[in-house]
Amino acid sequence: MIGKTAVLDAIAGTNRGLLASEPHKQAILAAIATLEDLNPTPRPVEAPNLLNGNWRLIYTTSKALLNLDRLPFCKLGQIYQYIRVENSSVYNIAEIYGLPYLEGLVSVAAKFEPVSGRRVQVKFNRSIIGWQRLLGYNSPENLIQQIEAGEKLTAIDTAINSDRQQGWLDITYLDTDLRIGRGNEGSVFVLNKV
């Protein structure tokens, strides 16, 4: 699909948006808008077989995520989003790299509820910030198993008041291996299936 190739080509080399100049960002957003018009799944929330799974962020305009790269002595690693449709759960995991043996991670667990054929309401309920070594972190899957088992982790592991920490996300494009979303704060997210 030409529109999909245009988006992937436009975001290549931007390091998830960290290296994109303002003119480049505008070109990327234009390519994304064109692809959204070609969405093969007009009601993505009703396509659990496509939505469910493990996703890796390949581009975003989210300042909250991109600013993780600005922490002293830190570099933003991979960012994952794991969606479990069967229990309406979503797990966001950002890997942070810096000084040797001080690799960290920031993770947020949430529940989502369909609001329409393309919008979900997201209620955040748990935040985990810690050192990968202390958490025994070796993969997102391992961390999610610990979270789902209800384990208290060796980290800053806190409950979030989901009444105050919530938002929505419109899924504007979804196929077998690419998803685009637009959040309530105006951010755009492009993810590919892992």
Rank of each mutant, 00 (worst) to 15 (best):
N92W: 07
S127D: 15
G130H: 02
A10F: 01
Y173R: 01
T158E: 06
Q78P: 11
I171D: 01
A27Y: 06
I129M: 14
L65W: 05
D177V: 11
V190F: 03
L29M: 07
T176H: 15
L38I: 12
A109I: 05
A31E: 05
T14W: 04
L178D: 03
E185T: 14
F112L: 03
I58K: 02
N49H: 10
I96D: 00
N49A: 12
G150R: 05
Y82A: 14
S139F: 04
G17A: 05
K193S: 12
G98S: 01
V7G: 01
E151S: 10
G136H: 03
Y80E: 04
S62M: 03
D37H: 12
N49K: 13
V7K: 00
L35V: 06
E113T: 10
L76R: 01
T60W: 00
I128V: 08
K63G: 12
N125G: 06
A6K: 14
K193D: 06
Y91A: 01
P40Y: 04
I58N: 01
P72G: 09
R118P: 04
L71E: 10
A31Y: 03
R70C: 14
S187T: 13
W55C: 01
A149L: 12
R164I: 15
V45T: 08
A155F: 05
F73H: 13
P48L: 12
T14R: 05
E103A: 08
Y82H: 09
A30W: 10
E148V: 15
E36G: 11
K4V: 13
I11Q: 00
T41Y: 05
N142Q: 11
Q81M: 13
S107I: 00
I180Q: 03
N125F: 11
Q26S: 11
V120N: 06
T176S: 13
G17K: 01
R126W: 01
T154W: 06
I160V: 15
N52T: 07
A64C: 08
T154G: 11
T154P: 14
G98C: 02
D170T: 07
R179W: 07
T176E: 15
I79E: 07
N67Q: 11
V90I: 12
D69C: 06
A110Q: 02
L38A: 08
A64N: 08
S62Y: 04
S162E: 07
I171G: 01
H24R: 11
D69K: 05
D175C: 10
V45P: 04
S21T: 10
D170C: 14
A64I: 13
G17W: 02
I147Q: 04
P42Y: 06
N67D: 09
I28W: 02
V188C: 13
H24F: 08
S107D: 02
Q145C: 08
R43A: 13
V115F: 15
G186Y: 10
G181M: 04
W131Y: 14
N67Y: 07
G17F: 03
L76F: 04
N49G: 14
G117P: 01
K75G: 15
E113Q: 09
E46V: 12
K152I: 09
V108T: 14
L169V: 14
L57C: 06
K25M: 13
P140E: 02
Q166F: 10
L38P: 03
R70V: 12
N49C: 09
T14K: 07
V190Y: 00
